[in-house]
């Protein structure tokens, strides 16, 4: 199965449910309050933020005033268009080389695993890759990354546990510069976005890259777990405030969670989704596709 095929298969069941639900609802209730409430709940049920769900429903209502809405299927299509327009408000950046990619996020979302996958993704494109173990805090974090570096057959820069993460970044960037490496991927320790001291540490790593390697393109991606709820928006706001995010990696889409919060991230914060993670293997990564994503939510 193709990468998105897998995602599709997992979500198809729900998809049928929603379309059928809307059809039924429409036939018994036309366009009353109950219908719109149900619409809103479908979106919130996919973890679309409450305010965004309200906005989308308002847009559907506006169309209804024009009398264009004839049946449930029309509503489904309309919803898809609206959501896709919002997602496309944040265009995906072009990846230029040489580049540095830094992954940030709260604890356990899948940063280190994603780095393994990205290393594989770029080597498959015939790019040279170095990974930097700048999570010097969590127990055995650099061992975990070493295993991924072995699997993807890429170079790793690491220091002792407990050492300064910025020093790891400095080393990785300097050696990448000397060796003319195409892609440097930096792993960072998971941190809750409300902890100022840890966010400051991240800013410091950010400054090291900017200062030491201005000629490289620098991308900062926030890794978000699709199982997360409304808190994802708060996470994105905080990390964006600290390091100015360039994109999102949405992981664990092989589960049944939808990650609907990314609509707010694109619409309100203008941060595009770049990659999606669909499993625990090295190959389980794909570029984000807004059309397929919306298709999967509804």
């Amino acid at each position: 199965m193709g990468l998105f095929g897998k995602l599709f298969a997992a979500l198809k069941k729900t998809k049928d449910n929603v379309a059928t639900k809307l059809r039924m609802l429409f036939s018994k209730n036309k366009l009353g309050d109950e219908f719109y409430d149900e619409l809103e709940e479908i979106l919130i049920g996919a973890d679309v933020s409450v305010t965004m769900a309200e906005e989308v429903v308002e847009q559907v209502k506006a169309e209804a005033i024009d009398g264009r809405i004839k049946d449930g299927d029309f509503v489904t299509d309309l919803l898809k268009d609206i959501m896709q327009d919002i997602l496309d408000e944040a265009p995906m950046p072009e990846i230029n080389y040489p580049c540095v990619i830094m992954l940030v996020g709260v604890n356990g979302v899948g940063k280190t695993t994603t780095i393994g996958k990205l290393a594989h993704y770029f080597t498959a494109k015939k790019k040279s890759v170095t990974v930097a173990a700048a999570d010097t805090f969590r127990a055995a974090a650099s061992d975990q990354l070493s295993v991924w570096a072995d699997r993807a057959k890429v170079r790793i820069v690491k220091h002792e546990e407990g050492s300064d993460p910025s020093a790891v970044v400095y080393d990785a960037v300097s050696s990448a510069k000397a060796k003319k490496t195409d892609v440097v991927i930096i792993d960072t320790a998971g941190r809750l976005h409300v902890k100022d001291n840890l966010m400051n540490e991240l800013k410091k790593m950010n400054r090291v890259v900017e200062r030491e390697y201005p000629e490289a393109s620098f991308y900062k991606f926030l890794v978000l777990d699709a199982t997360t709820g409304q808190n994802a928006v708060s996470q994105a706001r905080a990390f964006d405030g600290a390091v100015d995010l360039d994109g999102i990696v949405l992981t664990k889409l092989d589960g049944t969670a939808k990650g609907g919060f990314v609509i707010s991230l694109c619409g309100d914060l203008h941060i595009p989704v770049i990659f999606v993670g669909t499993g625990e293997k090295m190959e389980d990564i794909a570029l984000f596709n807004s059309e397929e994503f919306v298709e999967a939510i509804l």
Binding site: I44, Q230, A257
Partner: peptide
Amino acid sequence: VDAMTGQEAVNV
């Protein structure tokens, strides 16, 4: 369970 879990918490 991660306290930040969304609607999926029920299924899990």
